[in-house]
Design a protein around this nucleic acid. Sequence first.
DNA 1: ATGGCGAATGCAATTCGA
Length: 262
Amino acid sequence: MKIATWNVNSIRTRQDIVKEWLAKNLVDVLCLQETKVIDADFPRSPFEELGYHLYISGQKAYNGVAIFSLNPMEDVSTGFAPIVGDLEAEEFESQKRVITGIMEGIRIVNLYVPNGGGLDSDKYHYKLGWLSILRKYLEVFRKKEQLEICICGDFNIALEDIDIYNPKGKENHIMSSPPEREALNKVLEIGFFDVFRKFTSEGGYYTWWDYRGGGFQRNRGWRIDTHYLTSNLYEKVVNSTIDKATRGLPKPSDHAPVILEL
DNA sequence: ATGGCGAATGCAATTCGA
């Protein structure tokens, strides 16, 4: 089984690229972020024609997540509220960044972590608060279900310096500041492991390259899109790769898809 | 340090992303 994650930076703009990629790769599950479209306007048919079931949670202009699955998913929900309660989730429900469902006994959680703006901005604190609720959300699943969990998506955090092309001075940079790393590490302490690092320990592998300044051509990138797995699932994974070639296509997303194989 | 590029909105210029 293959589970992929891809921040597409607008599903309407990237519709053809995603369809062609899926037709070639036919992954069992594709988790998308930054779909940037309300559910009523989501381009469903190209993907349904390939045999996928679509589970979507979008909004106007920003954010938006979706899961495409070859087999139907069970117990699909969107946002934090159905899991942690309305009161805890209240502040975070207007931005569509979370969708989950069960696929072949695996709880799959697709996330678009807030960008965070500048250090110490309102958006930065929103990001840290969001990660705190995410921890509670995942703890509920761990307690009430006996399922292995795959969380994947755009985390907007590079956990280690080797995940950044030039880590020098990046402790004061969004996506690599110590409080962000600490907040994500607290989530992972529940029992999640970075599956890409099971296979690749060296640096130089990235999933996002800035559109500006020839970031991709110079391989000035960041590894911020990942799968984190509970231990039994982690042990079963046989491969984890980044499809860097998609970033070199005409009119690409600034992120490349990441694929794991069970 | 700054700005650069791209998308959405909505029709020019601004907001947002990372």
